[in-house]
Amino acid sequence: MSTFRRVATISFNATLRTYLSGSNLFWIVAFPILLSFLISLWLGSDGDTAVSRLGITYETPRGDQASREFVRVSKVFGVYLIFCFSTLLTRAGNLHDERRRGTLQRTLVAGVPYSEIVAAHLVSLILVGALQAVIVLVGTGLLGTRWLATGWGSVILPVAGTIFAASGIALGIAGLLRNPGIVQLLAGGAPSILALMGGAFFPLDVAPAGVQRLAAVNPMYWAMEALSGGFVYSGWASQAAPMAILFLFGVIGMVIGVQGLRRFEP
């Protein structure tokens, strides 16, 4: 069997196993959709209520009506970000679980190189993230979030950048930490804090200067920047820099992850 087929088989099976679990389905897709729906109920306005109330004309930077959807879309995207990072960080510990259960050793004995297992682990993270994104975006879209109000690029690019960055960071954490308990704890708490400190739910203007500066090393901040670039500003031109930074997060995470996992090679 070729390397490609082995990596594809292992990663496909890992993805399938993830989505065949009822509790995983609830936490990875059903709960974020439900939460997004509830949050979108809050946001009946399209962002210019106060201005309309005052009788002043309002224009978005793009000058179109569609970009006013950003207020609603950004909150739902914030929820998606939390669950994307949480899901991928949780899945990152799978390799260590397999080692503990002995399935990793059995796979190695069967002749699969360790490098291919690590590669398959990374691919499965990306696949789990991609499938989650499709289901959550379609689900929330059906419940009223207008993801495509300003075109495909506005949402596809930030989502792709998020999945890549989150997968890389998750792999990096798997390479640094072996304790599943600590990984679980990180997966549970870190994404919400990153979202709040990255301006996913309220503008960072209200945060102190230090917190605003810290946002530069927060992938969720850059994901939100990529989204606002697409929805509110000049599209791809505004999204390029945030996308590049998200890509950098992903690559750095992957390098750390691969190096770290090599240390743990049985």
Partner: peptide, 22 residues
């Protein structure tokens, strides 16, 4: 012509500026 405020939707600057203008 009526005054037009141009700012990102949902931003604090929009709310503040609209209040001051009004």
């Amino acid at each position: 012509e009526p005054l037009t405020v141009i700012a990102p939707p949902g931003s604090i600057v929009l709310e503040m500026l609209a209040g001051v203008v009004q």
